[in-house]
Amino acid sequence: MSGQTFIDTLKQKFGEKIVGDHLEVIDPWIEVTPEALVEVCQYLKTDPGLQFNQLQCISGVDYLETDPKKAKKIDWQPHTEVVYHLWSIPNKTSLVVKVILPRWKNDEEGQLPEVPSVADVWRTADWHEREVFDLSGVHFTGHPDLRRILCPEDWVGYPLRKDYEMPLEYHGIRGR
């Protein structure tokens, strides 16, 4: 299936839920609304023509320019992306699905943005979502056991956010 026909079928099926598609880049990606994510993923995994049965990776990417000089030149608004890399073992094809979220829910600092968990679609998502939660600060609703995975449980902050600051002290250990 060529890229464009795939996008057309997808848009026909899900309509407005597919927000955008970018086929001209190196790794083509589609953008999905957070509400429709599970539904779209379930379709991508089970459709006999697509069979994206392997979830390779979930990454959180934070977009915020902390340098005020550079911030004037950029052409995007601060946001957080959750990127899903899918692979189909039978078809040997890949697809990137993105969900674009505000950096904070309702723009209230400290309120994590929310996206539904796909742990029921692919079990791989379980630990990957915990990692994204831990490092990038995205809350996955409906996740079976969402807690920090790499950082200690009592760690404060989300290290892969661009405005993260190293704590100066952790249990008597000096940070700097």
Partner: peptide, 28 residues
């Protein structure tokens, strides 16, 4: 731009995801 690539390492498929904003240092 951004790229993702997996290669076959002894223990399985190791993937790297690189997001670049056009400078020499990756954004992610």
């Amino acid at each position: 731009g951004e790229v993702y690539l997996e290669s076959e390492c002894p223990r399985g498929q190791m993937g790297f995801y690189l997001v670049s904003d056009g400078t020499s240092i990756p954004w992610r």
